[in-house]
Amino acid sequence: MAADWTQLPPELLESISRNLTVYADYLRFRCVCQSWLSSVPTTPYHLPPQLPWLMLPQSHFHRPHRAFFNLSNDKVHALYLPEAAHGKRRCGSSHGWLVVLEETPSVLLLNPLTRAKLHLPPLSTFPNVVRFDYSEIGREYVLRSSTGELYTRSLRQMRDSFFKKLVLSSSPARANGFTALAILNQTGDLAFCRNGDQSWTFIDGARSYSEDVVYMEGLFFAVNKYGGVAVCDIRGVSPSVSFLETPRQMGADMQYLVNSGDDLLLVPRYLDLDYDNVDDESNVVYRTVGFDVFKMNWSGPRWEKVSDLGDRVLFIGLNSSFSLSASDFPGCVGNSIYFTDDYSEFNFESAFGEHDSGIFRLCDETIQGQWNLHCQVHWPPPLWVTPNPC
């Protein structure tokens, strides 16, 4: 007699579901029958970080849908996201949440998978904003520079260039709260807000450590152009900053920090400059020509060269940089860096031609273009977003 799988005990079904690590498998499990559906939680809080999707510059679908390229099956999926539609800037992603700005002071966190939304303190609450005018007459910000001089920025300028990147300590949906840390593009300042704060606070002493930020073991680590690291502890009443004095890493155009298992990695990126003729005009075109990888030796402290990442794969770009095990996800190549263009976000002329994105293989230092076929326009650049149901 055939077994009736619909009659499995609920506690056994829940135990099985907790061994599923891929969100798509969890959804398929719940769809088997009504009893399986009712025996496991709707939201799988136990899941590890998922293989990211690539948010494409232009949707293949009618607005207000957005297009996402799925690495695991080479398919493009449409998500209904009017909050991230044309005219709004997606300035980063962290823990599966998009950071969305428009021509208002609003700073919106949006989970594209669940469409959950949360507002952070507005741009007008940053300490260097002296005055904000949203009337029909003014519609501008007045800011104070690091030297004390006042200058103005339009609403669009603030939307397009105020933030460089925003990093979250954890998903905003988690019950234990979270902290957001923003890198300001023009001044190089770091600013933070905790869940429930009404305004942003600068981290004194960390200016110029604005290449990248990563959250690790309760602390934010920020890196400068030369691989120097500022360790920001903002768990107390007021933030404190200490520094890891490491030998300078020279020659790189950009620097990234990645939390990879128990290791803190530094990933220098090297660009080459070329010119492309478009409509009889010569335009600057940047192309990535290589990466290095270094691991922090805490006893130095010093950066030590890494020639082989093993099974690990790194994802860098405008997203919060992170690492995964390639063997956990079909179609993912280990010992590689999956990168997207995050400099033409602020240098629009470099966005002519194909996007500077692809896979850098450490084994032979080659670059494989991967997703340009799906990028039908050149701005904004594609963005890694990790599917996160919670």
Rank of each mutant, 00 (worst) to 15 (best):
Y141M: 03
R63Q: 14
N224I: 10
V32I: 15
N259R: 14
R144H: 05
T125E: 08
G227Y: 03
M296S: 15
R159Q: 05
T104G: 08
A326M: 07
D292E: 09
Y134L: 09
C193R: 01
G87Y: 01
V306Y: 05
T114W: 02
F329K: 02
D308L: 00
A116W: 14
Y134M: 09
T42K: 11
V22R: 12
Q255N: 14
G87K: 02
A230M: 00
L314R: 02
T340F: 01
L309Q: 10
N259A: 13
P105E: 02
E304I: 15
W36N: 03
F61R: 06
E14A: 09
Q198S: 10
P127Y: 08
R63M: 04
I203C: 11
P247D: 12
V237D: 15
W371K: 05
L266R: 06
G358S: 08
G227A: 11
G236H: 15
A24G: 13
L219N: 05
R63K: 12
T104D: 11
V214C: 06
D276H: 10
L244D: 14
P48H: 08
S169I: 04
G227P: 12
L27K: 11
Y215L: 01
N176I: 13
V333W: 03
S327I: 04
L314H: 01
R287M: 08
Q157M: 03
S94Q: 02
R139K: 13
F126P: 09
P239W: 00
C375I: 13
P105V: 03
D262L: 14
A2I: 09
S93T: 01
P112V: 00
T179E: 07
G317F: 01
C332P: 10
Q186S: 12
K88C: 14
N176M: 14
